[in-house]
Design a protein around this nucleic acid. Structure first.
Lengths: 132, 132
DNA sequence: CCTTGCCTTGACGCCGGTGGCAGGGTCTAG
DNA sequence: CTAGACCCTGCCACCGGCGTCAAGGCAAGG
């Protein structure tokens, strides 16, 4: 399988696949003319990468999952390194949710405050209130 | 007030203040030698900018708040344009929270699945499971 | 032979907020 | 006069995951 075919099967671009290779996530054999040649199994690997990226993983985080798949496991998740990354990411997501929750509260407070004070200060008698 | 003083009062760098100016958020008079000169009121403006940036606003989003402060309002929040941005940001944050919630669930599912299947597949009898 | 369409490597662009440097002017105190 | 601490403009670097262009090699069909 050439790189264009792999890209199409996996739903991405050849450029992207070369980038993954440069980052150590993909490997390719080369045929005599220098073209990259892929085994059909690489489709799964690329799909795994895309799926994890979509969830918010960085390429460096994804390496263990790829190694796990390559080791012959049915899923990239089951190896200890992958589990460690999953745990870490879960913690990060929890932290992000918490922070966003605080931001949300602050925004709500600001909005309430703004609407309240608009009654007092933004009147046709005081047009300087309007920013435009 | 010179740019270095303003930077110190507002807790940031002169470089940053020049950048804000280049983006249309700050204005400065120039003294005869070409140095930027600031009114003491600019400290509040810069602080407003920093506070909104810290919450996750982009510089372009912050413009209305600055205009609102400049118009003489006690808070940058009270003008209609600011309120509109606040509403939009709140919606964005809500969306982000929702998405992260889904991601969190997926991660939890993956983790549970991984740990369950590790029992079956990752044994000393099948060392290829381990990615390292 | 020529075109078409794939492949190759290499390099720059993007986005946003800032740091940092180069190369110069200005002001002030000693 | 000079040192040092400011100030000025302008430009490169960063981070990450690519898009995109350049310039060329290779395969296959008319």
């Amino acid at each position: 399988m050439l790189i264009g075919e792999l890209a199409e099967h996996a739903g991405t671009s050849a450029r992207t696949l070369r980038y993954y290779e440069s980052r150590g996530l993909l490997r390719a054999d080369r045929s005599s003319n220098g073209y990259r040649t892929y085994d059909a199994a690489e489709v799964r690997v690329v799909r795994e990468i895309r799926a994890l990226l979509a969830v918010g993983f960085a390429l460096d985080d994804i390496r263990p999952f790829v190694a796990c798949l390559r080791a012959g496991n049915a899923s990239g998740d089951v190896c200890p390194d992958s589990v460690a990354v999953l745990r870490r990411k879960l913690a990060e997501v929890d932290a992000a949710v918490a922070r966003l929750g605080e931001v949300r509260e602050q925004l709500r407070t600001q909005l309430t405050h703004a609407i309240t004070h608009r009654e007092e200060t933004c009147t046709p008698q005081r047009p300087s209130c309007w920013s435009q």
